[in-house]
């Protein structure tokens, strides 16, 4: 893959805040058209990474590129190519939603007729048309979140960066946003998403990177990460199993007529394990599978829940 095919390319990126090193040389490659999740506990470095990509944070060393262009040297190009919905809600109290969006479009160089046209489109897309002439302070939290996303979309950038876009929104709106985000991704937009909702990442993202303490500690597709790093379990209710029996090359334990066997691939391993148990003279009365989730992988890697 050539460099230009990466929507976002980060190499050896570091960021120091006085004595604290927030990023310790991270590398990331996000292909064009992908839906990429950046997961990490609070303070892991997600928002700092996004800040560097969008021009809100100054990098200490390393490089970050958007569509092959450096975010510092070619900032006009890179910032035009990116739409950001920041984690924290911000609002300009002086203008209506329509005016805010038109102004935001203007900052990106859209002429007024085009800015107005885009504003109308984006308002409609996010179900904000009825609130177009309201001011931000008159809106609910969910509506404010929609406006944040509308601002990110207003100049129709090829890359969307969404920092916790569904934080604090109700389930209905979350599902609506998921639907829109999937549609936009299908239409060709590259999306970089950070989220506290593992389910969101599993549902939406084609690729994921887990960041902790300023380092990328795992990268891959959700399924791939679960398969390679997660530990599923097979629980067998058995009869006539003796503690002296051994299941070779398996990590397991036995108590109360139940064998618990850890596995990386429960579907593949199940027949072989049952055969081994029966071969030792025991019988299997019941078999259950507990599959590992992305959350398990996350906890295993970071030692804490994503909400920590």
């Amino acid at each position: 893959m050539t460099q230009l095919e990466y929507a976002i390319r980060i190499r050896a990126l570091t960021k120091n805040y006085d004595d604290f090193q927030a990023l310790k040389g991270i590398d990331l490659k996000i292909p064009e058209g992908s839906f990429f999740g950046l997961l990490g506990p609070n303070g892991a470095g997600k928002t700092t990474t996004i800040g560097i990509l969008t021009g809100l944070v100054r990098l200490t060393s390393g490089e970050a590129k958007i569509l092959g262009k450096d975010v510092v040297r070619d900032f006009r190009f890179t910032r035009k190519s990116v739409g950001l919905s920041p984690q924290e809600l911000n609002f300009d109290p002086f203008f209506t939603i329509r005016d805010l969006l038109t102004l935001q479009a203007g900052y990106y160089g859209l002429d007024r007729p085009l800015a107005r046209q885009r504003t109308t489109q984006v308002l409609e897309l996010l179900g904000l048309t009825a609130k177009a002439d309201a001011k931000m302070r008159e809106l609910s939290g969910g509506m404010k979140r929609r406006v944040q996303i509308a601002k990110a979309l207003i100049h129709d950038p090829p890359i969307l960066i969404l920092d916790e876009p569904t934080a604090g929104v109700d389930i209905e709106l979350r599902h609506m946003l998921w639907h829109h985000l999937k549609e936009m991704n299908r239409a060709g937009k590259t999306i970089l998403l950070t989220t506290h909702y593992i389910e969101e990442a599993e549902k939406l993202c084609s690729d994921i990177a887990i960041i902790d303490k300023g380092r990328i500690i795992a990268e891959g597709s959700p399924g791939g990460l679960i398969n390679s790093l997660g530990k599923s379990m097979i629980k067998l209710k058995v009869r006539n199993w003796k503690p002296s029996f051994v299941l070779k090359n398996r990590e397991y334990n036995y108590s109360d007529d139940e064998l618990t066997i850890r596995t990386n691939n429960s579907v593949k391993d199940m027949p072989e394990i049952i055969s081994n148990v029966i071969a030792r003279g025991a019988s299997v009365e019941e078999a259950r599978v507990f599959n590992s989730s992305l959350e398990d992988v996350f906890i295993q890697l970071t030692g804490k829940s994503i909400d920590a």
Binding site: T54, G55, L56, F75, R76, F77, R79, K80, V82, L84, P86, E88, N90, F91, D92, P93, Q104, Y107, Y108, G109, K151
Partner: peptide, 14 residues
């Protein structure tokens, strides 16, 4: 204070 300066800082304006 209201953090909407970020809306400006992320734009292509120098």
């Amino acid at each position: 204070f209201l953090r909407f300066i970020e809306d400006l800082l992320i734009t292509p304006l120098s």
